[in-house]
Amino acid sequence: MLNRDRWICQLCHRVINPLLRNPHPQSAAVHHTRGKRYGDDPRYLQAAHRLCNQQAGDPTRHDPEPKVMTQW
């Protein structure tokens, strides 16, 4: 997947340095474009920086509905 994407982060489109290792924020990571529920199907995986992947989050998770916390 990293070679397929030519070591380019598919989220920020910058080069991923192959010498950097986890937990460095610019190290290589796998971004699941449809969430982990599709597993590790290569069609739904992209190369990404660790930080970019964390900021993108899970694409299948939606923000919860707001709840009323106080009564006026």
Score class of each variant (00 low, 15 high):
N3M: 13
N3E: 14
N3D: 15
D5Q: 05
R6H: 11
W7V: 09
I8F: 04
I8W: 03
C9P: 02
C12E: 08
H13W: 06
H13R: 07
R14F: 13
I16W: 02
I16L: 02
N17G: 05
N17C: 07
P18S: 02
P18Y: 07
L19N: 11
L20M: 08
R21N: 08
R21V: 10
P23M: 09
H24E: 14
P25V: 01
S27R: 07
S27K: 03
A28V: 00
A28P: 00
A28L: 01
A29W: 03
A29M: 02
V30P: 02
V30T: 12
H31L: 10
H31Y: 13
H31T: 11
H32C: 06
H32D: 11
T33F: 09
R34Q: 13
R34I: 12
G35C: 04
G35P: 00
K36T: 07
K36Y: 05
K36R: 09
K36D: 11
R37V: 12
D40T: 06
D41Y: 06
D41C: 03
D41W: 04
D41G: 05
P42S: 02
R43N: 08
R43A: 09
Y44H: 12
Y44R: 08
Y44F: 15
L45M: 08
Q46K: 15
A47C: 06
A47Y: 05
A48Q: 01
A48G: 04
A48V: 05
R50M: 06
R50H: 06
R50P: 03
R50T: 08
R50L: 15
C52D: 02
Q54S: 08
A56E: 00
P59L: 14
P59W: 14
P59T: 13
T60K: 08
T60M: 10
R61P: 00
R61C: 01
H62K: 15
H62G: 11
P64I: 03
E65T: 10
E65H: 15
P66E: 11
V68I: 13
M69E: 13
M69Y: 10
M69L: 14
M69D: 11
T70N: 15
Q71K: 05
Q71E: 11
Q71Y: 10
